[in-house]
């Protein structure tokens, strides 16, 4: 119990002392997770819609692969991306390993199937109806896409929030591809893992509380916009 009390005090102190390292870690965590979520959204939303609305050979197999990828182990993703970005890897010449860019890539690989899967399920359930209504009222293919996005906005929001949650809370992939380098690639989760390893439990718990607080704030903001959207009828 003392740990929790101490860590709560430590969390307050971490945030109120304006420690440069701590704020650097928080900013980098948010940057990496937001960037990967944005890239994953740009890939996952159109892919999910296309998968939900079109029939083609191999769709069932592709769906199964996406569902499987929704629960990809983070360390496997980290390892694969690290191998590809390592000096002897296919993309070694880019020299991205142990940089924030590598962390964004790894998290994008983790988050994209989640967003694709959720959007696919939503468009499978309502997409055909929306498409039919748009078509019978005189809409073209572009109108169908815009209407789908408008009709499924709550589902899209859920997909993005879930993706962001996965990105901000994962540790395995960013640890492997980022290397947890101080002032360079250290993020909240790797900071927690490191302090746990060093026996600094109150520091680890304190950062955990900060992580939870940030997740709560981000989700509250997104939930607020989601509710506003649904109240628009």
């Amino acid at each position: 119990m003392t740990y929790f009390l101490d860590s709560f005090k430590e969390a307050i102190s971490l945030l109120t002392t304006f420690d440069q390292e701590v704020y650097g870690i928080i900013v980098l965590s948010l940057f990496v997770s937001f960037s990967s979520t944005v890239v994953a959204t740009l890939i996952g939303v159109p892919s999910g819609l296309a998968l939900g609305l079109n029939e083609f050979r191999g769709k069932a197999m592709l769906t199964r692969i996406i569902y499987t990828m929704m629960s990809l182990p983070t360390v496997v993703v980290g390892l694969t991306v690290a191998i590809l970005l390592s000096r002897r890897g296919a993309f070694g010449s880019l020299e991205l390993l142990y940089t924030p860019a590598a962390m964004v890539i790894a998290q994008t690989v983790l988050v994209t199937p989640i967003i694709t899967g959720i959007v696919f399920n939503a468009s499978k359930a309502n997409g055909e109806e929306v498409k039919r209504v748009c078509k019978t009222l005189g809409g073209n293919s572009r109108d169908v896409i815009w209407l789908l996005v408008a009709e499924l906005k709550i589902n899209l929001l859920i997909a993005v929030v879930t993706g962001f949650g996965r990105a901000i809370s994962e540790v395995g992939a960013v640890m492997i591809v980022g290397g947890n380098i101080k002032y360079h690639t250290r993020v909240m989760t790797t900071y927690i893992a490191m302090n746990n390893g060093m026996g600094n439990y109150s520091k680890a718990l304190a950062m955990g509380l900060v992580l939870l607080l940030i997740s709560f704030i981000v989700n509250t903001v997104l939930y607020h916009f989601g509710m506003e959207a649904s109240d628009d009828h």
Binding site: N126, E129, V130, R132, V133, L147, A150, S230, H233
Partner: peptide, 8 residues
Amino acid sequence: SPYLLKRS
């Protein structure tokens, strides 16, 4: 069973 859009 017509589908109405999620708006007014």
